[in-house]
């Protein structure tokens, strides 16, 4: 075989392999993407909650995207306590104002940021939440104070549709 012939053959084989690889990739993607949230799951992204019957000092738990959301109507003492904390001391520094736009209402994802358990209400060293799985303590603003969890409990996107209705998501 001549040199030239070899080159041409190499090009042909390379092109064939390359085109084949592109196709294989294109086929694999649907098989992966089918496991992502489907259209009906994505459509259920928001939930409206009536909070008119929640008394101060009480927490209700609602389901949103399959996870619990804590909605706590905080007392004046609790708000004061949450605001008095020195941000510098915190593992994950966040002001209470940034976490609760309306300080009376704390709306947060009730999922421990350690490994996903649901923390218990009004437990732990900081009168906030306590995760029974691995002992993470959260304060009344849902901020991590002690234990293995790396960050504060997450605040979902939400807004007050009217005085008594919160729309989450």
């Amino acid at each position: 075989m001549t040199e030239k012939k070899t080159n041409r053959r190499d090009f042909l084989f390379t092109a064939t392999y390359a085109v084949g690889a592109v196709g294989a990739g294109a086929v694999i993607w649907p098989m992966i993407d089918q496991m992502n949230p489907d259209a009906s799951v994505k459509a259920l992204a928001s939930t409206e909650v009536d909070v008119s019957s929640v008394d101060p000092g009480k927490t209700i738990t609602v389901l949103w995207r399959g996870k619990p959301v804590f909605i706590r109507r905080r007392t004046q003492e609790e708000i004061a306590e949450a605001k008095s904390v020195d941000i510098e001391e915190l593992k994950h520094p966040e002001k209470d104002e940034d976490r609760a736009k309306n300080p009376e209402w704390l709306v947060m994802l009730g999922v421990c940021t350690h490994l996903g358990c649901v923390p218990l209400d009004q437990k732990g060293d900081y009168n906030g939440w306590f995760c029974p799985c691995h002992g993470s303590h959260y304060d009344i603003s849902g901020r991590i104070r002690k234990g293995p969890a790396p960050t504060n409990m997450e605040i979902p996107e939400y807004k007050f549709v009217d005085a008594n209705t919160i729309k989450i998501g």
Binding site: P30, Q34, A39
Partner: peptide, 10 residues
């Protein structure tokens, strides 16, 4: 057929 990503194709 409707909602799952590429479900109809599969």
């Amino acid at each position: 057929m409707r909602d799952v990503n590429y479900g109809w194709l599969i």
